[in-house]
Computed example of a mutant assay.
Amino acid sequence: MPRAASEIATGTLFGVALNYTGLLQSRLAEFNQPPYQQPPQKPVLFIKTPNTRTTDGQAVTAPAGERLQPGPALGVVIGKTASRVAEQDALAHVAGYLIVNEFSLPEDSYYRPAVKAKCRDGFCALSSEVIPTRDVPHAHNLILKLLVNGEVRQENTTANFVRSIPRLIAELSEFMTLHEGDVLITGTPEGRVDVVPGDDVVVEISGLGRLRNSIVAE
């Protein structure tokens, strides 16, 4: 049975950038320029701070004078403490999955996700239910869709992850402990779009349902 996200997805929100193959490929030319001269070799992480949390049905405020972009993503809820977990054991530490809309201002650099772009009030919407892992047997073959005013604006599949869920958990838990209730936001695919006040924004993930938020002016 699904469980309320407000009861079990209560920990830190860890975002993973560049976790879709198409997005990574589209930025390779940029990454090969100085000063880095190569793509990131480890997961590129950012944190959505507690003030960013909002829920299904709540309005999201578009900052005045800024572009606002939704970010459809699969959220992975940690079910028990994970420290130095082997990849083959990682899914045993997952309680379930939810839908995330990781709102952001446009990102200038994926190497250094900006707090100003990522951590505005209400910039991380979570669906109201966590679907248990046993009810999502094919987490790496889920269809994500972003709809704006009923029109599909983004569509992709978790089959295009750069790093699988077990690999993410293994790599992150190698240097930091993941706790029960933490949420891994597994990445937003390429093709982010702008939304404006008055827009109705929906994220759908196959088998998980939908998450809806309206956009309002500051």
Results as ranks from 00 to 15, higher is better:
Pro2His: 01
Pro2Thr: 01
Ala4Glu: 03
Ala5Lys: 04
Ser6Ala: 12
Glu7Ala: 05
Leu13Val: 02
Leu13Trp: 11
Ala17Glu: 03
Tyr20Asp: 08
Arg27Phe: 08
Pro35Tyr: 04
Gln38Ile: 08
Pro39Trp: 12
Lys42Leu: 12
Leu45Asn: 13
Ile47Pro: 06
Asn51Pro: 06
Thr52Glu: 00
Gln58Thr: 07
Ala59Leu: 12
Val60Arg: 01
Glu66Val: 03
Leu68Cys: 07
Gln69Pro: 04
Pro70Ala: 02
Thr81Ala: 13
Thr81Phe: 12
Arg84Phe: 06
Val85Thr: 14
Glu87His: 03
Glu87Ala: 15
Gln88Glu: 12
Asp89Val: 04
Ala90His: 09
Leu91His: 06
Leu98Arg: 11
Tyr110Pro: 10
Tyr110Gly: 14
Ala114Arg: 11
Ala114Pro: 07
Lys116Gly: 13
Ala117His: 02
Cys119Arg: 10
Phe123Asp: 09
Ser128Gln: 14
Val130Thr: 08
Thr133Asn: 07
Asp135Ser: 14
Asp135Lys: 15
Val136Ala: 04
Pro137Ala: 12
Pro137Met: 02
Asn141Tyr: 10
Ile143Met: 09
Leu147Gln: 05
Gln154Met: 13
Glu155Trp: 13
Thr158Ser: 14
Arg163Phe: 08
Ile165Lys: 03
Arg167Thr: 15
Leu172His: 10
Glu174Cys: 06
Gly181Leu: 05
Thr188Ile: 11
Thr188Asn: 07
Arg192Ala: 07
Arg192Cys: 06
Val195Asn: 01
Val196Glu: 09
Pro197Arg: 01
Gly198Asn: 04
Val201Met: 05
Glu204Met: 05
Arg210Pro: 05
Arg212Met: 08
Glu218Gln: 09
